[in-house]
Design a protein around this nucleic acid. Structure first.
Length: 152
DNA sequence: GCCAACGTTGGC
DNA sequence: GCCAACGTTGGC
């Protein structure tokens, strides 16, 4: 089983949205590296939920991958911000997964804390200039984050 | 294939 | 709101 980190702006779709609706398709990703990470996900993988561009920045909860290799429906919708005219249902360009809410942490594992605990070599999230929104997390790092989350 | 221009992300 | 870093586009 692998671990991941999913970034989202809480104003748009935050941990509370996911908690309320229980599951969600992770749509709207339009970056090839992030898409490739989505395509590498397996059922049962766990993903940390990260709030970006917010008042409090950091990991706020946990979700689980429950369905993989889903074409992102927004790419076919001309009214969507994420519409891609070059994509067709026969040959979709953007694939994603469905996630299920697992847990909202009692507090936040702030970016500052994460920077203090991990090395950029071990954790892509804290590398300078990193903008990737779907990030693989090494097991070693993931297990430590899970422990840190218990103490919140 | 190069690279300048432009758009976006995301922390501060 | 600013701006550094990065990704994409398009002319050549």
């Amino acid at each position: 089983m692998a671990y991941w980190l999913l970034k989202s702006e809480p104003d748009v779709f935050g941990i509370d949205h996911l908690r309320k609706q229980k599951t969600s398709i992770w749509d709207g990703v339009r970056n090839y590296q992030a898409r490739n990470n989505l395509m590498a996900m397996q059922e049962g993988d766990l993903a940390f939920f990260y709030h970006s561009s917010a008042e409090s920045i950091g990991i706020v909860g946990l979700c689980k991958v429950i369905q993989t290799n889903l074409p992102d429906p927004t790419q076919f919708d001309p009214k969507s911000d994420y519409y891609d005219a070059k994509s067709t249902p026969e040959n979709p360009r953007w694939w994603t997964v469905k996630v299920q809410f697992e847990q909202k942490y009692k507090g936040i594992l702030s970016l500052e804390t994460l920077k203090a605990c991990f090395s950029p070599d071990d954790f892509i999230l804290i590398r300078k200039g990193n903008r990737l929104s779907v990030i693989p997390v090494e097991e070693k790092v993931a297990l430590e984050i899970l422990e840190m989350a218990k103490k919140l």
